[in-house]
């Protein structure tokens, strides 16, 4: 009897947990989800909270705290795509605004006209300087 289910908890930065479990409780967006093996395929968002994993042959449950993400269930496999950061529409928005503001401040302090010619001139100037330096070095040695 297949009374175990494979569980993978991964985040964008690392693999957090991988192993077999008898039973899992996850904090779904619409309420807590209890998952036994051979659960029907399901996809849901999960809230920040604790993931409780009952490992086989152990009385204690393993707790993993996650700050939200997406939960995918297939009959023999549960995957938690955990977020590495606490997300929320407002928070994301704030981060985006901050990034935008930084960039805009910069544009204000510069006249905005793309000038490749100047950049290329600068680049070739730097290259010429480098060449001169290396030639000088050879002379010294």
């Amino acid at each position: 009897m297949a009374s175990k289910i494979q569980i993978e908890v991964v985040s964008a930065e690392e693999s957090i947990f991988s192993g077999e479990a008898e039973f899992i409780v996850a904090p779904g967006l619409m309420g807590e989800l209890g998952i036994y093996p051979r659960h029907t395929p399901l996809l849901t968002n999960i809230k920040a909270g604790a993931l409780r994993i009952k490992l086989p042959n152990e009385n204690d449950e393993q707790l993993i705290f996650i700050s939200g993400g997406i939960l995918e269930i297939q009959p023999g496999l549960v995957t938690v795509l955990a977020d590495t950061a606490i997300r929320g529409h407002d928070l994301d928005e704030a981060k985006a605004l901050e990034a935008k503001r930084l960039a805009e401040e910069l544009i204000k302090s510069n006249a905005s006209e793309v000038n490749y010619a100047q950049a290329q001139a600068e680049l070739s100037e730097a290259l010429a300087q480098l060449q001169a330096i290396s030639r000088l070095r050879k002379k010294i040695h």
């Binding site: 985006a96 990034a99 935008k100 930084l102 910069l106 510069n110 793309v114 000038n115 490749y116």
Partner: peptide
Amino acid sequence: FMTRIKAKLSSQ
């Protein structure tokens, strides 16, 4: 580099 060539920076 992008500021030097005065490209349009949206975010950084």
